[in-house]
Structure formats: structure tokens, C-alpha cells
Design a binder for these strands. Structure first.
Lengths: 244, 244
DNA sequence: GCAAAAGTGTTCTCGGTACACCCATGC
DNA sequence: GCATGGGTGTACCGAGAACACTTTTGC
């Protein structure tokens, strides 16, 4: 319990906080998920520097001294994609002593959900040689312990998407029920019955029928819906639980 | 994305990691839960030092430079209670810039579950003037942002206890079904039907009937059970899901 | 007209919930 | 013998799962 005595040690005499405690740093890493209509994808950067030069890695950065954790994640994301006010969720801290070859760096892992069509890569980003949306299940090797982080975030997303209406963050504002179902199938990695899925999601009364149709598809066009966030907030305040 | 360029900046010339990044530290805080047979309780310490002198606080410490996060939590817990191999679960990082008045300290919050009867306070612990098991719902004001941490951990426990058999960590090895039900009622903060609870928990076939009886109670004595961890591991490998 | 995906109802099963009385013990 | 909590069974209801055919469009 030396934390307390060292940080607050005035009563016990001048015991300065050991310098050693500050040869360490903390970072955030963010798993950026997108959905291409068929597969769940993750945005990775190819590292332009050592260590792990040429490896694919998650986006992340050290946390600035006067910056909250969420702010740091948002900053990195905006720098990379230009997007603001993106959905993000903190998942877990990774703090193994040797996880970073150059020093003690504890990282706080987040994931973000973005509409893949809104993403435009930032040509000024100099820290990587390239970006790419990888299919989540095809990612094999990543820099640092990023593979572990990716797995933890994917698992967390799988859980969360059943009990919170966060999947919509991955879709355009207007979407069809088939797109929504395919999204859930991709995240949950299991097929879902078309009729049962429609029945269940519509019975929540959280989708607004926009009276618009899909255009230019070589089959019967589908109705377009949007998710009613306002109504969702009303319902949860009355004890409603989203559940799929 | 200066993290990468600064930490790995050799290609870009000698850009040392700014000293500022290391005027910060990380700690762990641990919400220690126990169950007294009726109420869920949390072990708090009364601070013997500034800041927040005299305030109740969670147990915690700075993380040593060559220590993993889980190790730090275990170390603090063992120092305080003498217990080893205690169940613990990481919940969330708290990193607001001003959460600690003396510097930038990011803390990783954990909770632990212990059998309250096995707890014996460590008389050598000098960092606090006293310890006490507080009823979770009666805790009002804590040092730092510990109230927020307690709430997040309690919420996390509530969720987790339904889908993982972790409640047993709070009970003695041998317990009655009523004790188990009262534990769930305390954590979930709702009454549970006696018959339905028994039916459901017994139908999982995870409790071993020890053919022993409660002793010395002024009513019909109850059967004693223990939880079969070995069988649980077998079942989950076959796709079983604990659910209460 | 053919390929491709949209849209639509019913049946069955199983798990959740509600509910009341007798039993064994200590004092 | 009385107070206290232990232990037991059934009936009802609603949600989830399984399942096949017609419709609308582009080419």
C-alpha cells in the first residue's frame, strides 16, 4: 500500500515518489470496426517505424498529460478519419510488463464503430505506410499484443451488440432490414432466421419506416428504416431492455 | 499519432519521448466484496494521510515498475487480508485528468470476491486507521473518484453474476440453497422465488449434494452443497452457458 | 422469363413465473 | 407447542425456433 504513503507521505516525512514510477507511460489503442455489407472489418495501419516495422497494428497513441482517455481516443480517430462524435467503448487495460519492447506502457483498449462509407483516409498521416480494412477473422499477426486486444474487443462487441442498440453505428442512417440482419450475422458469427429477426426487431417499435425504397437493385427493392434514438431513450427510462 | 513516432522515432531523428509523458503514474484500485448472509458488503479503509485524510476509500496502490496489473491487485489484497488466489475481475480504467489532486494518476479498477469469514485484518497495515465492511448501498462518500469506481464495479458484478458462476466465491465451500439464493437477492437487489430458484440451479447439475446438514439452527436444517468447478469446466467446453 | 432478394404467418416446444402447504429442528 | 426457515409440484403463458411460398425488380 505504498501508493498512499508515497503519494501522500507528508505526515511520514519527505518520501518523494520514486522516479521509477514515472519511467512508464500510458496509451490508448482503438479497434475501429466497420461493416462492408457482408463482413465485419477492422481498420489497421501498416507501421512505418520500428519496432514492428511493416507490421499491421491498431491505431493508438500515448495519452497527453492533460487529456482524458476518451479524448485521446477521439483525437487519434479524428486525425485518421476526419470523423467526430464517433461511438466508442472502453474494453480493458493491457498492462503486461513486457508488452512494449521500449518501456513500460500500459494501454487502455477501446473499440469504435463507424459507418465504413463515411471513412476517408487522411493522406497526411505520416506514421503509417498504409491503411486497410481487414476482415476481422482473417487478421493473423499484429504488432505488440494487438492481436490479444483485437480479440478482446471483438468479444466485447459480440456481447454488447445483443443488449444495446449499438449495431446501428455501423450502418448508414437509412438501412434495410436485410442489411441489419446481415450485420448481426457478421458480428455474432451465426445465421439468423429472416422472419424471426424481422418480427423481433420490428416488435420493439424502434425502427421508423421511412416510406422510401432501395434504388437500383436487381431484385425487389427493400424498405428503408432508421433507428429512433429518441424513442429508445424514452423506453429505457421506463425499464425497457434492448435484447436480440 | 505522435506515440508511434516518439517512442519509435529513430528513423525521424532523435526525438526523445517527452519527459512530460512520465510525470504520470498508474495505480490499481480494488473493490473487495463480501457477503454477510443478508447484505452485500464492501471492505473500505479509512485514510490515515492527506489528501482525503479521514475519508473512507477503496484499497489500491501504485503499480510497481516490474509488476503486472493483476499482480499489483493481488499484492495489495494479500497484504491487507492474507488471502491468496482470490477471484478478481478487471472492470474499467479511470483516467480523468484531475481525478487525483497530486498528479496525473490513471487507475485500473478491479473487484474481488472473498468469503467474508476468511477475512482477518492485517494489524501491520499502517496506511489506514481502520477497516470496515460497509453495506454497499449505504456507502455515501468516498475519497477521490472511488464512489464512481464502486458503482461501476457493483454494476459489473450484477451483470457478471448472472452469466458466470462467480457468486460462489462469496460463500463458504459448503453452503445451503437458501444462502445462495439470499446472495443472489443481495447482488441483484430483487427477491427471487424460492422454488423457482431451487429448480433452476439444481437443473444445471453443478451443485454436489454433500449429504450433510446444517447444524445448530433453530429450524429444520438445510442440506449442504458445494459447487462443482470441475464439472462446470467440462460443461462449458461442450457449449454450456451458466444463466440465472 | 429468369435470377435474386424482399416480404409474409402459423405451429410447436420449452423455459419462466406464479403460487401454498407440510416438515424438521431449537427453545 | 410454537416459531423459524427448509423443502416440494403444478398450471399457465409467452417467447423463441422452425419452416415455404409469393412478390418485385433488373437484365
Amino acid at each position: 500500500m505504498s501508493y498512499i504513503s508515497k503519494l501522500d507521505g507528508k505526515e511520514k516525512g519527505p518520501i518523494p515518489i520514486s522516479q521509477e514510477y514515472f519511467k512508464s507511460a500510458f496509451s490508448v489503442d482503438n479497434v475501429i470496426f466497420g461493416f462492408d455489407g457482408t463482413d465485419l472489418r477492422v481498420l489497421l495501419i501498416k507501421r512505418a517505424f520500428k519496432p514492428f516495422l511493416g507490421y499491421w497494428a491498431l491505431t493508438g497513441d500515448l495519452v497527453y498529460p492533460h487529456e482524458d482517455l476518451d479524448e485521446a481516443v477521439q483525437r487519434v480517430l479524428t486525425e485518421l478519419t476526419g470523423l467526430k462524435d464517433v461511438f466508442m467503448e472502453q474494453v480493458k487495460a493491457f498492462g503486461e510488463v513486457d508488452r512494449h519492447p521500449e518501456g513500460r506502457v500500459i494501454t487502455i483498449a477501446y473499440y469504435s464503430l463507424i459507418d465504413i462509407r463515411r471513412y476517408t483516409p487522411n493522406p497526411d498521416a505520416a506514421f503509417a505506410t498504409s491503411f486497410k480494412w481487414h476482415k476481422v477473422r482473417e487478421v493473423k499477426e499484429l504488432a505488440f499484443d494487438h492481436m490479444k486486444i483485437l480479440e478482446a474487443c471483438f468479444e466485447s462487441l459480440k456481447q454488447k451488440v445483443r443488449s444495446q442498440p449499438i449495431g446501428f453505428e455501423l450502418l448508414p442512417d437509412k438501412f434495410t432490414l436485410s442489411q441489419l440482419r446481415q450485420l448481426y450475422e457478421a458480428i455474432l458469427e451465426q445465421p439468423l432466421d429472416k422472419r424471426n429477426f424481422r418480427k423481433k426487431i420490428l416488435s420493439m417499435n424502434l425502427l421508423v419506416d421511412l416510406n422510401e425504397m432501395q434504388q437500383g437493385v436487381a431484385h425487389r427493392p427493400a424498405k428503408l428504416y432508421r433507428f429512433d434514438y429518441k424513442k429508445y431513450k424514452e423506453l429505457i427510462s421506463k425499464g425497457f431492455n434492448f435484447d436480440l
